Computed example of a mutant assay.
Amino acid sequence: MITLEHLFTQYNNELWGTFIALIIFIFLRFLSIKTVRRIGKISDINQMRTRLVIRYVSFGLFIVLAVALILIWGVNFKEVGIVISSAFAVLGVALFANWSILSNVTAGIILFFYFPYKIGDRIRIQDKDFPEEAVILDIQAFNLILIKEDTGELLTYPNNLILQKGVLLIQKQVATDQDLEQHL
């Protein structure tokens, strides 16, 4: 009969490795959340966008933790390789079919850290298909919500295209929070 003491002695290194990996995961997650919140506060970024980026970062750290635990517990790489290659084959087909969603989410994360314009700014996207000026109503994970002041039309513009096109700032903070809430 296997006792609990026998399991602790047999798997002592693995248990300590798991404990250390979990502590590192918790520390890195705490540090990354604090950093993203600080960047969001300094850059005056919407809290919903900040929470979304925190969720993405936490998911990435969890994947790293899962890989570390697989390595710590010494899972047979041939068996894991078959499972991972099968999963990547399915994911590859799914992501190829939905490449625009993935590129928009990635662009949303990039916009969180590097987009110089804020909600309420009037901009012009240098695009022959979209020559109008509009005010940024919201910046979401997949797209920008814009409103044309002259007609009141509500427009969505994909995040991946906003990174590919030139954006011209016409006027900073045209709309107040109350003005923006009226259009929602």
Rank of each mutant, 00 (worst) to 15 (best):
V64N: 04
F88H: 05
I119R: 12
Q171G: 04
L95M: 13
R49E: 08
N76L: 06
I2R: 01
T9H: 10
G60C: 09
T35Y: 15
Q140W: 04
N104L: 03
L69W: 02
F88S: 07
R49A: 13
E14G: 02
G108M: 02
I162M: 14
N13R: 10
N104H: 08
P116T: 06
L163S: 02
E79H: 12
K148S: 10
V67A: 15
G92Q: 07
H183T: 08
H6R: 05
G108D: 02
W16R: 05
I110F: 13
R51F: 14
K34R: 15
I33K: 15
S86Y: 10
D121M: 04
G120H: 04
D129I: 06
I24T: 05
G17C: 07
V75R: 02
V53T: 03
G74K: 07
Q164W: 08
A175K: 03
T9K: 09
F142P: 07
I145H: 08
I162P: 03
A66N: 01
F8H: 06
V57I: 11
G166I: 01
A87G: 09
K78Y: 15
N160G: 00
L184P: 00
R51C: 08
G92E: 11
L69C: 02
L69R: 01
L154Y: 08
R51G: 14
W99N: 08
G166P: 09
Q126G: 05
I63T: 04
K128I: 12
P116M: 09
Y114T: 11
N46F: 03
H183F: 15
Q126L: 12
L111H: 14
Y117W: 09
R29Y: 13
L168H: 12
Q182R: 13
I84L: 15
W16G: 02
S86D: 08
R51Y: 14
W16Y: 14
F96Q: 07
I26W: 13
L163R: 03
A89M: 12
S43K: 14
I147S: 12
A134S: 10
Q178M: 12
V64L: 15
L102Y: 14
I147F: 11
I170W: 11
N76M: 05
F88I: 08
L28Q: 00
L61D: 01
D150M: 03
T156M: 06
I170L: 11
R55M: 11
L163D: 05
D179F: 09
V53R: 02
V83I: 15
N160M: 11
G60V: 03
F8E: 07
F77W: 14
R37H: 08
L91T: 01
K165F: 04
R38N: 10
S43G: 09
F77L: 14
T3H: 00
W99Q: 09
R38M: 12
